[in-house]
Simulated assay, not measured.
Amino acid sequence: MTIQTAKLSNPAVRAFVTAVNAHDREGFMTLLAPGATMSDDGADRELAEWIDREIFSTHGHMEVDNESKDGRALIARYSNDTWGEMRTRWSFVVEDDGRISRFETGQA
């Protein structure tokens, strides 16, 4: 059962998923706090290079199946042109100003 993006409870996470699905790199970058970091399958990655390779140059798309931790943790079916579709987990650290300072993803 997919959760509509508009119904995701955390505004920053909702905007993150919206930007990914709209292929809006500029909008995506405005959601991130200065110096934001991320990890993929437990390994820290260089954020700009990773998002270009895994999201924006490969038409990344998220279909959220579940949210928890006040909307800051997701289980989603993630697809892109490189890997096809996989079940993934996402967690977010959202700062007081509403921007994301870290996100972690990996296979669920």
Rank of each mutant, 00 (worst) to 15 (best):
M1D: 09
T2R: 07
T2V: 12
I3C: 03
I3R: 01
A6I: 12
K7N: 15
S9T: 14
F16I: 06
T18E: 14
T18P: 03
A22R: 04
H23N: 15
H23D: 15
D24H: 06
E26L: 11
E26G: 07
G27F: 05
F28T: 01
M29K: 13
A33E: 02
P34V: 04
G35L: 10
T37A: 12
M38L: 11
M38F: 05
S39K: 12
S39C: 12
G42A: 12
D44V: 10
R45Q: 09
L47F: 03
E49S: 10
I51V: 14
R53T: 15
E54H: 03
E54A: 14
F56W: 01
T58M: 09
T58F: 00
T58A: 15
T58I: 08
T58N: 12
H59Y: 10
G60W: 00
G60I: 04
H61I: 12
H61E: 10
M62N: 06
E63N: 12
E63Y: 00
D65P: 00
N66D: 14
E67I: 09
E67Y: 00
S68G: 13
S68T: 15
S68E: 15
K69P: 07
D70H: 08
R72D: 11
R72L: 04
A76L: 02
R77S: 15
S79I: 11
N80R: 01
N80Y: 00
D81R: 11
D81P: 04
G84K: 02
G84F: 07
E85M: 07
R87N: 10
V93F: 08
V93M: 12
E95T: 12
D97E: 05
D97Q: 06
D97T: 15
G98N: 02
R99N: 05
R99M: 08
I100T: 01
S101I: 04
F103I: 07
E104I: 12
T105Q: 02
